[in-house]
Amino acid sequence: MTRKSFIQRVLNYWAAISSLPAVYVLMSYITPPKSSEISRLKISAGKRTGYSPGTIRMIREGKTALFVRETPSGQIRSFSAKCTHLGCIVELREDEQRIRCNCHGSIYDLDGNNIAGPAPRPLPPYRVEIRDGEVIVSSL
């Protein structure tokens, strides 16, 4: 190896290595920071007295859409309105007593269990608490 080609090679390596921080900065910049909104979810779903056995409501707040339902046994339950297949917002079909996703035809029952179509899982549940007569829904 001649002195000239040696210096050339050193310069090439130096250029490659010195560009790494720039690549790192660029990649870090275009990668979005993590949002804490999902973990902070807490929604008021109205008065407990507003529900009766069989009632189901769709609540939309912020960037979250969810269902709150009083089961025939009188238990208040809540689950997401985001299809577990590819994330579309599902539609409540009260006349058919089911929940349907219009994107790819997944069907859930009124408890959020997937019963037909490509949805792989039931609609994810939320925690429900009754505070001062108010239904509070929050992340599990």
């Binding site: 939309r60 859409a65 309105a81 917002i89 539609e91 996703c101 219009n102």
Partner: peptide, 8 residues
């Protein structure tokens, strides 16, 4: 937060 229209 709305459901997509049917037949989309």
């Amino acid at each position: 937060l709305a459901s997509p229209p049917e037949g989309i």
